[in-house]
């Protein structure tokens, strides 16, 4: 979706994508076919949101691109470890490779953070990854699988927006807006991807638009574009915003 909606960001992102994909082909490609994983556009979501958030709040920095690279890797790693077969007697080889590939990409994430001098981001990423895995454990033992998955995805998106924004500005008010926007956008995107009805999550729809309204720069139209695209799918309009509601 982002690829279609944000063509202007794609060229900037392509170098990052090429670098990560080269690493994966080189290290994992010899073990199994990684093409379908690398061609899956869902892995562009978080890194592009990271760049977009920095652009919206101020402008991109080298740090923004480095963070986008890390989010791109995180998307791959979490996919590999997201859901493994429980009976590995039948699919032992694939399973082995998925586990090891995921481990290698996670370790690359941590190495990159340290190598790029992104030390202040080490704790947020460790916290994000531990929280994500904690929720996935609960998901596996719960009957409401979807709820956990939606929340995990929301935390990832929230972090992509917040950390992306923080690479460009340290205005905490703006960053909090991005953070909240990211969380609700993650819920919407997850519901959208699962082809589910928006009714249950309408408050996130409302919240996203409210937060967009709080963004003062003209570049907020990028976020509006994403929301409108989803709205068309669900056949819902932009809601009445906070300011209008108060009036």
């Amino acid at each position: 979706m982002l690829k279609i909606l944000m063509p202007d960001i794609m060229p900037e992102f392509m170098a990052i994508e090429a670098k990560n994909n080269h690493f994966i082909k080189l290290n994992i490609g010899k073990l199994h076919d990684v093409r379908s994983m690398l061609e899956n556009e869902k892995h562009l979501w978080m890194p592009l949101l990271c760049i977009l958030s920095a652009k919206i709040i101020k402008d991109v920095t080298i740090k923004t691109y480095q963070l986008a690279e890390i989010f791109h890797l995180l998307s791959y790693a979490s996919q590999l470890h997201w859901s493994l077969p429980e009976n590995n007697k039948d699919s032992k080889e694939d399973m082995k490779i998925d586990v090891l590939s995921g481990d290698l990409i996670y370790s690359r994430i941590y190495s990159n953070i340290c190598q790029y001098g992104l030390q202040p981001y080490l704790l947020p990423f460790s916290n994000l990854i531990s929280a994500m895995n904690e929720s996935l454990i609960l998901r596996d033992f719960s009957r409401e699988n979807d709820d956990y998955e939606i929340r995990v995805f929301a935390s990832l998106t929230e972090s992509a927006c917040y950390l992306g924004g923080s690479s460009a500005s340290n205005n905490q008010l703006d960053l909090n807006v991005l953070k909240e926007f990211g969380y609700h956008l993650g819920i919407l995107k997850s519901v959208y991807d699962k082809g589910k009805n928006i009714d249950e999550h309408y408050s996130s729809w409302q919240n996203c638009w409210d937060r967009v309204e709080e963004i003062k720069t003209s570049k907020r139209h990028c976020f509006e574009k994403i929301l409108r695209h989803m709205g068309e799918e669900w056949e819902i309009d932009k809601p009445v915003l906070i300011q209008e509601r108060v009036i």
Binding site: E86, I129, I137
Partner: peptide, 12 residues
């Protein structure tokens, strides 16, 4: 506990 549990616990 199963493979998924073990992998997520390790990552955690």
């Amino acid at each position: 506990y199963g493979n998924n549990y073990a992998i997520h616990l390790g990552d955690y």
